[in-house]
Simulated scan of single mutants.
Amino acid sequence: MDFLTIENEVESEYRIQRSRFIGFLFPIKNQDDFYNKYCNIKKIYFDSTHIAFAYRLIDKGNNIVEHYSDDGEPAKTAGYPLLYILKQKKLIQAGTLVVRYFGGIKLGTGGLSKAYSTTLINALNSVELMIFQKRIDIKAITVNDKQYKLVEICKKLNANNLRIEYLEDRTIIYFTIAESNLEILKNKLNFDRDIEINII
């Protein structure tokens, strides 16, 4: 099964019966990524009535990890429909938060589910979905005169999160590539003994 994912964060807003719903859809690498975002949103919208959420990701053991919270709304009326939509869209490495300001008029369980769902759907309509490729973090250690060769290969393989540390007699390069490109990387290096590749 091909999963989909997103690269950029998007926001949306939906209003009904004086209640205001503010939605966030964003890429995540792991649960820490998600909860860091959640904590930031809680600080910004500290006066909100509810912050429902859902996320789905694949961990390092290739297991699907998913979770949701209704945050005090009636059971399965807030976070659950958000998770359902993520699953329906085959989204992975993605999290969503919907902030609600209660407007004084109860929406009922059906109305709540529709409002939370609509907020996320509005966000999905404004973001590009792409085929998910599992990415891995690499630490490469090389002698100083080989660093340029490795950096050029990284660029051709669409590596990201590139970070370079210069030491006296060697260079350490950190980067992230699609797991499917690992063998291509090794082949391009021709198993160069001066370049050590480690998955971290």
Rank of each mutant, 00 (worst) to 15 (best):
V10R: 06
L189S: 03
T96K: 05
I41R: 04
R20Q: 13
L91F: 03
C39Q: 15
S117A: 13
Y80E: 10
H50A: 07
I153H: 07
F3I: 02
G72L: 04
I6M: 05
E168S: 13
N187C: 05
V98H: 08
P27G: 13
E165P: 00
F46L: 03
E168T: 11
I153N: 08
Y14S: 07
R170D: 06
I105Y: 12
K114E: 06
K90Q: 13
V65D: 00
Q133A: 10
N181Y: 06
G110C: 08
D33K: 00
E152A: 08
T109W: 02
N62M: 04
F21I: 09
I85G: 09
I141L: 15
K186E: 05
K76A: 05
F53D: 00
I164R: 13
Y55K: 08
D47N: 11
K186C: 00
R18H: 14
N158A: 09
F132E: 09
F21Y: 09
I16V: 15
I200T: 08
P27S: 11
E128I: 10
T96M: 04
T5R: 05
I105W: 08
G110A: 06
Y35W: 06
A94T: 09
R56T: 13
P74D: 04
A123H: 06
F175G: 07
D71K: 01
A140C: 14
M130V: 13
L124C: 07
I200P: 03
E128C: 07
N160G: 01
K76I: 11
E13Y: 05
I195Y: 01
V151D: 13
T142V: 01
Y84G: 08
R20C: 00
L25A: 07
K106R: 10
L112C: 10
I136L: 07
E196V: 15
I105A: 00
Y166L: 14
Y116V: 02
N161T: 12
Y38Q: 01
I195G: 00
I92E: 07
E196A: 12
F26K: 06
K37L: 00
F21L: 01
E152D: 13
K186S: 01
G23C: 07
T118W: 06
I22Y: 08
K114N: 15
Y84C: 11
L167M: 14
K87D: 14
N125G: 13
N40E: 15
Y148A: 15
A52S: 12
A123P: 00
T77S: 13
H50K: 01
F34K: 02
N190L: 03
G111F: 15
I16F: 10
I153S: 02
I138P: 04
R18Q: 12
G103F: 03
K186H: 02
S69W: 01
Q147G: 02
E165I: 14
R18S: 11
K155F: 04
S117K: 08
T142M: 07
N40Q: 14
V151K: 12
K29V: 09
A78M: 07
Y148R: 11
T77F: 05
I164T: 15
G61K: 03
A78S: 15
Y166P: 03
R163I: 10
K89P: 02
N198W: 01
K188S: 08
R100S: 09
